[in-house]
Structures are given as C-alpha cells and as structure tokens.
Design a protein around this nucleic acid. Structure first.
Lengths: 109, 109
DNA sequence: TGTCGTTATATTTGTTAGGGTATAACGCTT
DNA sequence: AAGCGTTATACCCTAACAAATATAACGACA
C-alpha cells in the first residue's frame, strides 16, 4: 500500500512540463540530440519531437537551441533556462514525495 | 502557469484508489446505485463496474455491498470503511494541493 | 560536391482501451 | 406469475493514440 503522485505545470490550460517531459529534457541535455534521447528512452522520434515542441510553444524563454545540418548532422542544446526548469521541477517533485509519504503514514488508510 | 497534481494509492503495484475512482465511489455512495453513478458521470456501466471491481479485489475490507434484484432492482451501498477511504483520500489530496501551491510560489519557475 | 546524421513533417499502419449491444440472474412489488 | 431495474458478463467494433515508414532540408566536412 503505497502513495504515488504525478506533478505537472500547465500554461493556459495546456501541459507545459511534467515527469515525462523533464526526463526527456534531461536526456536531451546530456546527449545533445533529440534522436539520441528518443532512442535511449525507447520513444519514437516523433513523440519526443512533439513533446519538446509543446514545451517550446508554451515557454516564455527559449528552452532549446536546435541546429540542423553541420557537424554530426546537427544537434540540440538545452539553454540555462531549460536546465533551471529541470532542477526546479525535480526539487518540487522530491519535496512533494517526501511530504506525501509523511502525510500518508500519518493518516493511515 | 499553475501547478497540478494527481495522487493515487497502489496495492501490489496495481492502482487501488485515485481521483477518478474516489469520484465514482462518492457518486455511488450518494445514489446507492452503480448504474445511476455511471450515468451521472457520463461513463459506461461497464467501465464503472470495472473500476469498482479493481477496488474490491485489492481492498482488505469490503468497500461495497451489492444487492441484485429486490426493491428498485437492487442497488449498491458503500460501507463505512469505503466512506473512510473517500474522506481520507480527499483530505490527503487537498493538503497536497495546498502544499504544492505554497512550494510552487516559493520556487517560482 | 557528395556524404552523413540531424531536425522536421506527412502518411500509413497497428494496437488497445473503451463503447455499444445483448443477455442472464436476481428478488421485491403488484 | 409477470414486470421491473439492478448487478454481472460476454462479444464485437470502433475510434483515439502510438508506432513505423518515408521523405525533405540543412550545413560541416572530407
């Protein structure tokens, strides 16, 4: 019997970032490539691109810098703002989990 | 820009209760009928029955008392244990939402 | 200038959760 | 005994979602 949670942030009623998108962003930041990240997460390139596109459309500041063509065919960088999103969301998520487990034990069930 | 959350409780890795199931349970408790609750929630009877069946299979104590046939064709009662589940889950949910909104403002984004 | 691996996008194919429908059992009520 | 509205369950089918495939543009580099 365990408590589970899922957090996400919405902008204009549309999902902006959540658990899955943050995991994807982190992998893109490390691999510097959307396609490599998608492969690593066993996700189709299209799905990864769609998710990142949603983030891009809703973000107030740029999250990704994409390069088409060039060395290694191009690649994608995550901006400092994007990396801030990652760390802030992960912090919020872990504090929430701790809070919930404490409360769950208190309430019982 | 707003924070959202979804909580649920798992038993043996399977979903036991969550937002949707609690809403269904509440409606069953009020209407004393699975079919009436399903109709009110714009959900097929089959789906409602499946959800309640999952709860039943995982619960340690009875959650529902179902009557087939009889006055008005029968009906379904939610046990005190089931009502306890409802109130405890809702309490956990609201405290979590308050906590998250406070933390969200603190962290910004 | 041709090759390469990437981003970007459309189109087609597959999968699966849920909807629709049908049917049976049940036990008060009349 | 018949009728009613409920729970319970099987079967088919479809409609939304994800996967697979195909193709184009791009720019460094050899």
């Amino acid at each position: 019997m365990e408590i589970k949670s899922r957090l996400w942030v919405e902008e204009q009623g549309k999902p902006f970032i959540g658990y899955g998108r943050i995991k994807l962003l982190k992998t893109v930041a490390r691999t510097r490539s959307i396609s490599a990240a998608a492969k690593e997460l066993n996700m189709s390139y299209k799905k990864a691109w769609n998710l990142l596109n949603q983030i891009n459309k809703l973000a107030k500041e740029p999250v990704l810098i994409k390069n088409i063509g060039g060395k290694n065919g191009g690649g994608t960088e995550v901006t400092p703002y994007g990396k801030g999103l990652i760390s802030k969301f992960e912090q919020l998520n872990t504090t929430c989990i701790h809070f919930l487990e404490k409360e769950f034990k208190k309430i019982g069930l």
